[in-house]
Simulated scan of single mutants.
Amino acid sequence: MRPLALSAGEPAGIGPDLCLELARESREYPLVVLGDPGVLAARAEQLGYRIDCQTWHGGEVLRTAGRLSIQPVPVRTPVRAGHLDTSNAAHVIDLLTQAVDGCLAGHFSALVTAPVHKGVINDAGIPFSGHTEFLAERTGGKQPVMMLACPGLRVALATTHLPLREVADTISSERLETIIRILDQDLRQKFGLSAARILVLGLNPHAGEGGHLGREELDIIEPLLSRLRSEGFSLDGPLPADTAFTPRHLDQADAVLAMYHDQGLPVLKYAGFGNAVNITLGLPIIRTSVDHGTALDLAGSGKAEAGSLRAAVESALEMVEAKA
């Protein structure tokens, strides 16, 4: 198979540490890290790891423990573990740009991303609301869908990184229809499901309480779900979020569609933090990521856990196989 691309993320965070953790293990799959060789070498020395980093320009990929293939992407200024520098924000964007372009050109089979720090990128004057939105714009995707998954649970989002006061105005029949169609299609095509059963949450407490706690369910969500069911979609809801995440409902669902970020993700991260995967649907490429941030306080300490990155790699490999 073509190699997986792994972008090293914010160089001052734990991204380089996680890449090096994978490099310490033998790998049956081909993996190329996009990052700065000097940063990775310095971090390996700080951690006490012996890693042989070799430049990759196509061709054979190193797979044995202690060796790593790297596509060099230089930082703009020297890096200190745990200390952000706006000068390297452009480096992070370079990582993602080269990784995405490599996937689109067919050099890589999928993209796995280590965490970035949105704040320092914006402080550098670069508009950036997250991986999901950046990848959609770079690949020409019309509507990216953010989904996190852990064993036994998948949660997709109707809205992602928005202030809470803007969420209700963003929920529309057109937006939800697009997201449900993408979610249904990618669950079947990228996860190999013969049919996709989707549980849809309401926006308001108690799913609006029959209109007494908000009318979005009555005016927008219920009519849309009814229409899509008539087309053959398997949709349950809208259900109250406070009772939807129970075995009675989840046992009958392949994925949950939450209306906003903090409605669905706290439950998923409670259930699987450290082993969950962030997946971007609705793109012409496969992309997975870790479920956590840059953890600046852990960078270079040897205490960073690579469980979520391993899960992201495994998920990307499964999606590549399902798509083949």
Score class of each variant (00 low, 15 high):
A299C: 03
A168V: 09
I126W: 00
L283Y: 04
L34M: 07
G210T: 03
V92T: 00
E166A: 13
A110P: 02
S301V: 04
Q263F: 01
E314F: 05
Q185H: 15
P284N: 12
Q185L: 07
P3A: 13
D242A: 08
L317T: 07
T159Q: 04
V290S: 15
L40C: 08
Q98C: 00
G302E: 05
H206M: 05
L183A: 02
L296Y: 14
R24D: 00
V277C: 05
T288N: 10
A5N: 08
I51V: 15
I51N: 07
G302D: 07
S301G: 08
L104N: 08
G302Q: 08
K269L: 15
A81D: 08
H117R: 13
G211A: 11
G102R: 01
R76S: 13
R154I: 02
K190C: 09
G48E: 02
F273M: 03
W56A: 07
E174Y: 14
H212N: 12
V32F: 02
H206S: 06
H117W: 03
P151C: 03
M146I: 01
P151S: 07
L162Q: 09
L34W: 08
R76I: 06
D169R: 15
E318D: 13
L6W: 00
R229V: 13
C103A: 02
I121D: 06
R76Q: 15
